[in-house]
Design a protein around this nucleic acid. Sequence first.
DNA 1: CTATATACGACTAAAAATCTCGTATATAAC
DNA 2: GTTATATACGAGATTTTTAGTCGTATATAG
Lengths: 139, 139
Amino acid sequence: MIKVSKETEYALICLVKFVQDNNKYSARELAEYFNIPFELLAKILQKLSQNGILRSIHGPQGGYMFEKPAHSINLGRLLQILENPVETVSCLTHRNCRQSKKCNIRQNMEHIHHVVNDYFFSLTLEDFIARKSAAIGDR
Amino acid sequence: MIKVSKETEYALICLVKFVQDNNKYSARELAEYFNIPFELLAKILQKLSQNGILRSIHGPQGGYMFEKPAHSINLGRLLQILENPVETVSCLTHRNCRQSKKCNIRQNMEHIHHVVNDYFFSLTLEDFIARKSAAIGDR
DNA sequence: CTATATACGACTAAAAATCTCGTATATAAC
DNA sequence: GTTATATACGAGATTTTTAGTCGTATATAG
């Protein structure tokens, strides 16, 4: 079906909100505002802070805020954190599928994976919000 | 997880084989050669012939062969046939998700979807095999 | 007529994504 | 120092999607 997970959607929705308001929000505030399951969103925000995207503040009046500016947050990196893994085709990680002996598409799929992946890595969160896009392909 | 389905993998494996050998093969031959579940592959090949990619021949000595040359078979079209649908983000088809009222990423996701989709539509099966990639992007 | 092939819908099984629960830890406010 | 509010994190349940199977019908070469 080729689509990003709800986790990635939820993460992007919140990150865009952080950019728009330049503010600190708790997981509960964001979950209620966007109607996202709280426990799920909490784990997503934890992942983002574990990976240096957000800074977390414990205790009352705590919450999350940006660790670094939107133009230094990379979209490819976000997918890497949230999509475990981005692979485009399963044989890129599971080398021993039932077709591996006679597989005739692995390198071709890998090439496409790189093109698409490079595209995501060429975009920052700022680009995502501005709907800018560097050129894809030309490898 | 962002990857193509087994159906797409199996289809590409067989299509590449058709190109390499320029031959006619039955579903059973291909299933045995590539170690793909026969019934599943049969349905995939049926989809491809329903959509004008392959020609099917009934009866003994029957099977499948190309309906048109590899350079006129489009990768985006193949995904369209096999991935039902290619959407990148779920809100593109399910407009009423729980966040729809306050969603702040739909148009941004749509933009990315178009860039990636256009890339796939810029490639033919021949390009896929040659690992070429046309440049698109810059939208 | 028979063997071999495609056509196609319904069903089951397996895998993955999504969501929930329980418990631990940190800290601001009082 | 107690309490209320927040993050941290692993385990488990549920739902959805994908992958694979089964049964039956139809076409056709020999």
